[in-house]
Simulated scan of single mutants.
Amino acid sequence: MLRTAATAVFVLLCAAPAARAADAPTWTVEPTAGGGRPYVYMEGVPGTVLEDRLSVTNRSTDPLTVRFQHSNSAATWLTLATTRLTVPPRTRAEIPFSVTVPADALPGDHPAAITAASGGREASVRIRLRVGGPTLGALTVEDVSVSGDAIRYSLVNRGNTPLTPSITIRTDGFFGRPLHHRSHGQPPELLPGRRVTLTEKWPNRPSLDAVDVHIRATAPGAPPSEATTSATFVPWRTAALAAALLVAAAVPARRLLRRRDASPARPRPPDAVDAPEGPGNVRHAARSGA
């Protein structure tokens, strides 16, 4: 029994490294040199040509063919030495690439990425390119709206540097409990020229009120931005019931007024004489035979 258990443990211990090796990718792509750089960082002024390399490692026992493509906002500035590379078994190969910064490029950060694909698998290497010159931080809040129990708005980075915004939402009404909510790091990073639409839940929103919703966005390196919208909440079921009760109460009153208008006028006594009215004059009835 002990021998069987020991054999099982030995088999499991031997199988664990094999399982981990089977789960590991057979190829990788990463920045060349630098010992595990998470991305490629490049910096230059407009008109500069910058160069770097990627390493593709084939750990399998078969040749590997990798296809490359680039994307993101600075993708048109990228030039790859080749878009197709065959790597022999258990070999690491390098692929050079360059970035030509246009003469009219705006100062600030311009992200890009190079994606490698082979055998149904893709892997990307990020490129963080910084163009020298004065940076401009500009953040705006736009398209604020209220729908049900949610507040929706858009954040737009109109500058040339990434921003990390913080949001403050405040509501002012007549009857309901005011809302004051602060959200940090949402989204964690807003790249230049990017727009994101966000939704915030509104717990315990009023059922009957007229409310102003104020949204204020701040980010280090950018002036704050504010936007406001108004929302009116009416309990439509209650309003419909009240309207129905008013209509029901108005019908008998209308019928009573119609009956009153339709009844004939009471005749006046035959001996009633109208005396002229004025100061000192008194209306009296004339006696017959006077």
Rank of each mutant, 00 (worst) to 15 (best):
Met1His: 15
Leu2Phe: 12
Arg3Ala: 15
Ala5Arg: 14
Val11Gly: 12
Ala22Gly: 05
Ala24Met: 05
Ala24Asp: 05
Thr28Asp: 11
Glu30Ala: 12
Pro31Lys: 03
Ala33Gln: 11
Gly36Lys: 04
Pro38Thr: 07
Met42Ala: 11
Met42Leu: 15
Met42Lys: 06
Val45Arg: 15
Pro46Leu: 06
Gly47Thr: 06
Thr48Pro: 00
Thr48Lys: 09
Thr48Asp: 11
Leu50Tyr: 05
Glu51Gln: 13
Arg53Ile: 10
Leu54Val: 03
Asn58Met: 02
Ser60Lys: 06
Ser60Leu: 04
Phe68Ala: 02
Gln69Cys: 08
Leu80Ile: 03
Thr83Pro: 03
Arg84Gln: 14
Thr86Met: 06
Pro89Asp: 06
Arg90Ile: 09
Arg92Glu: 08
Arg92Pro: 02
Pro96Asp: 06
Phe97Trp: 00
Ser98Phe: 00
Ser98Lys: 10
Pro102Ile: 04
Asp104Met: 07
Ala105Glu: 01
Pro107Glu: 04
Ala113Gly: 13
Ala116Gly: 07
Ala116Gln: 00
Val125Ala: 04
Arg128Ala: 15
Val131Met: 00
Pro134Met: 13
Pro134Ile: 13
Thr135Pro: 00
Thr135Met: 10
Leu136Thr: 09
Gly137Trp: 03
Gly137Thr: 00
Thr140Pro: 01
Glu142His: 09
Ile151Asp: 00
Arg152Tyr: 07
Leu155Ile: 06
Pro162His: 02
Pro165Gly: 02
Thr168Leu: 06
Ile169Leu: 14
Ile169Met: 11
Arg170Gln: 08
Arg177Glu: 15
Arg182Thr: 14
Gly185Gln: 09
Pro187Leu: 00
Gly193Phe: 01
Arg194Glu: 14
Thr199Glu: 10
Pro203Asp: 11
Arg205Tyr: 12
Asp212Glu: 13
His214Thr: 07
His214Asn: 09
Arg216Asp: 09
Ala222Ile: 01
Pro223Ser: 11
Pro224Asn: 06
Ala227Val: 00
Thr228Val: 15
Ser230Thr: 15
Ala231Arg: 00
Phe233Gln: 07
Phe233Asp: 05
Arg237Phe: 13
Ala239Tyr: 15
Leu241Thr: 12
Ala243Cys: 02
Ala250Ser: 15
Arg254Ala: 15
Arg255Ser: 03
Arg255Phe: 05
Leu257Thr: 12
Arg260Trp: 06
Asp261His: 13
Asp261Ser: 15
Pro264Asn: 04
Arg266His: 11
Arg268Thr: 14
Arg268Gly: 11
Ala272Asn: 05
Asp274Gln: 14
Gly278Met: 05
Pro279Val: 11
Pro279Met: 07
Gly280Asn: 07
Gly280Ser: 09
Asn281Tyr: 14
Ala285Ser: 14
Ala285His: 13
Ala286Pro: 01
Arg287Asn: 12
Ser288Lys: 12
Gly289Pro: 04
Ala290Val: 12
Ala290His: 11
